[in-house]
């Protein structure tokens, strides 16, 4: 049990309010909560990669950081225009 793992443990619970907003809010609130969850996940992946002592798995956090913006854009574009 190292400090990074404890940090990840604590950070995991910040996903709870995101989850509540994703399933309970209106359209915009849901989208914002989803984006927030993406950011939290990026940081969590960094923490976990450090906690497991596997530097090669930083790729996951990098992938999430690059892709989460595009994911938000998909919803923003379709919610504003077609649905």
């Amino acid at each position: 049990m190292n400090a990074w793992l404890m940090g990840a443990d604590v950070l995991l619970f910040t996903l709870v309010p995101c989850g509540i907003a994703v399933f309970r809010g209106n359209a915009i609130e849901r989208l914002v909560a989803l984006e927030m969850a993406g950011i939290v996940q990026t940081i969590l992946l960094v923490f976990l990669a450090e906690a497991f002592h596997r530097p090669s798995t930083y790729d996951l956090a990098l992938a999430m950081a690059l892709l989460t913006f595009g994911g938000g854009l998909v919803f923003a574009r379709f919610l504003e225009r077609w649905l």
Binding site: C18, G19, R30, A37, F75
Partner: peptide, 9 residues
């Protein structure tokens, strides 16, 4: 939207 969140988890 919920499914995307589920994917994150």
């Amino acid at each position: 939207v919920g499914l995307s969140f589920y994917g994150i988890i």
